[in-house]
Amino acid sequence: MPLLTATAVTKKFGGLTAVNNLDFEIEQGSIASLIGPNGAGKTTFFNCIAGFYQIEAGQIVFDGQPIQRLRRDQIAHLGISRTYQNIRLFANMTAMENILVGQHYHLRSSWIGAVLGTKSVREDEGRAHREARRLLRFVGLQNKGDLLASNLPYGDQRRLEVARALANKPRLLLLDEPTAGMNPAESQQMTEFIRHLRDELGTTILLIEHEMRVVMGISEKITVLHYGQKIAEGTPIQIQTDPLVIEAYLGRGSAGTAGHEATAIPALEATQGGASAGSTPASA
């Protein structure tokens, strides 16, 4: 049974249909990707799932429960966490505080208890700090807990944002361009990290990604959006040879000859190498 099922989801902005009648599902424990040219509606669809946008039509069901009318915090409580295309950490909180605030739902202390400093509040805080330190270690930021989020290097900020999302103990993690702005070595590291997340924690992961090396390397299923519509769906191999996908990326007429294809799409070509590099993570 799929963990998340979207049926005929439509989101419009004025005259523009950003997501058009989209059907989508993701299996429990899998890693899936959304790809497509700029403006294809990928992030809009993320925003629909996470409750940032109200959809005009359709239904989104998470774990048997429709969520399209819920508030963002209620969706988070059900176990959906996300990261953002342009990192949105709480810049003036420390790395540690960012993770602590991510655990909000799982802490139980009342404010009166906090003012009085009761034993249960202190225990609760102690647990929260231990968990935050564990997550910092997990994302490799163990010595940087006291730094302001805005002072962390870029790659660390990306990882901290994932750690903050993980603090909510999500069952579905939405990653919006997790390797944006990273060099090849960093994005290779991030790929390993995402795979590690799924293998260690069993978290279902849906990502938006432009870097084909990453997408092809870790996705079990890829969905291609174009002008808000799904134009292809399948395994990395299926997607790479789909003529509609190539046309969407390169324009009409480019999908003519197969030989031309291979040389004309550097991104897709690179994915072949990426897929093989991804399959041997031990070498990294």
Partner: peptide
């Protein structure tokens, strides 16, 4: 503080 910094993200965190 999270609300002060970014209300939308704060809500999405739960």
């Amino acid at each position: 503080i999270a609300i002060r910094e970014d209300e939308d993200v704060a809500e999405a965190i739960g």
